[in-house]
């Protein structure tokens, strides 16, 4: 469905943030992109939705295809129309507007006002929390509620593929669970998901397939269950040793903690 082939992203004509990333998300799959800060995960998502332009970035190499059509460098509005919606990092609600206004804006591409209303009701039944909050100003909501709003807003456009950038960022564990429950319900419904996460455990719990990024490259990929049991992922992203116990870093010498892939 979505395929990136050897994509390179250049910021301000000098900074190469993504150095030849290839990844694939097939229809109905849930794919996660893992990695530390600055690995290029968010930039990869932005290259797909092409909101790179606002940050003086562009795709210089490679191709991005969605349902057989090349979309790299396209008009962001056109990409949304094709069915890809990007939920930006950091719960970017439209702060001064109410929950309902936020959602209505998400559905702005619907043909008629009635269609938007219908979609709105669907979202309210799906995420009951939002229905309770409909008249509240989003700027004053809690972090978890704001995350629900931006996910609901993205769903308003009836996307085929939702890309979510760090849905768990800064949320309490209970809220993380709630957010991922919403994502799980989307997955069960057949929406393709591409999730960028630092919370490896939660992300691999939901995903079918995962990629690990490091300094602009994909260094490891595999089925979520394989990644879960991969020695390096366990050690560096999950903080577990081979026996599955939480390990104390005090007990080992740092030079032994060497990754087995080439960064």
């Amino acid at each position: 469905m979505l395929e990136l082939n050897n994509v390179e992203v250049l910021y301000s004509d000098v900074i190469l943030a993504v150095k030849g990333v290839s990844l694939k998300a097939s229809q109905g799959a849930c794919v996660t992109l893992l990695g530390a800060n600055g690995a290029g995960k968010s930039t990869t998502l932005k290259s797909i939705s092409n909101i790179l332009t606002t940050e003086d970035g562009r795709v210089t190499q490679g191709s991005i295809t969605f349902e057989g059509a090349r979309i790299e460098g396209g008009d962001p509005a056109d990409i949304v129309r094709r069915g890809i919606v990007h939920v930006l990092e950091g719960r970017r609600v439209l702060r001064h507007l109410t929950v309902e206004q936020n959602l209505l804006i998400g559905g702005h591409m619907e043909k008629s006002g009635q269609a938007v209303r219908r979609r709105l009701d669907e979202i309210y039944t799906r995420i009951a929390r939002l229905a309770e909050l409909r008249k509240r100003t989003t700027g004053y909501l809690s972090g978890g509620e704001q995350q629900m709003v931006v996910i609901g807003r993205a769903m308003m456009s009836r996307p085929k593929l939702i890309m979510i950038d760090e849905p768990s960022l800064g949320l309490a564990p209970l809220m993380v669970e709630e957010v991922f429950n919403v994502l799980r319900s989307l997955k069960n419904e057949g929406v393709t998901l591409l999730i960028v996460e630092q919370n490896t455990r939660v992300a691999l719990g939901l995903a079918d397939y995962g990629y690990v990024m490091e300094s602009g490259r994909i260094v490891l990929e595999g089925a979520a269950s394989d990644l879960m049991s991969n020695e390096d992922v366990r050690e560096f992203y999950l903080g577990l040793n081979l026996e599955g116990e939480r390990k104390s870093y005090r007990d080992i010498k740092h030079y032994r903690r060497r990754k087995r892939w080439l960064g």
């Binding site: 909101i51 606002t54 949304v80 990007h86 930006l88 970017r92 507007l97 993205a154 456009s157």
Partner: peptide, 13 residues
């Protein structure tokens, strides 16, 4: 008016 980037990400011109 609120946020150019969010508007773009939602497909608003």
């Amino acid at each position: 008016a609120e946020d150019h980037q969010v508007a773009l990400s939602l497909g608003i011109s």
